[in-house]
Amino acid sequence: MRIACPHCGPRGVDEFSYLGDATVTRPTDPADLDGFAAYVHERRNPAGRHRELWQHALGCQSWLVVTRDTRTHAIEAVEAARDVALARAGGES
């Protein structure tokens, strides 16, 4: 599998570290225990399109959001995680 780092170009998967599910979001309310339990522990295991966090650990160190088909390993999109987080926050930096 090769991942096209938006900063470095396509590199072998051996340069990247998998860092988890990119679809979960941290609850904003610190008292939301059910929300935190779900955020920490509950994961879907889709056969198909999935969004994942990867880090280009042996490269530019950037955190990335990779949209990947778990059945074929086909990669649909690779985005800088910072851009994804900013877009989610409404573009505030």
Binding site: C8, R11, D14, E15, L58, G59, C60, Q61
Partner: peptide
Amino acid sequence: AAMTHAASIA
């Protein structure tokens, strides 16, 4: 320039 690894050494 590139940041990569050679024989697994960054």
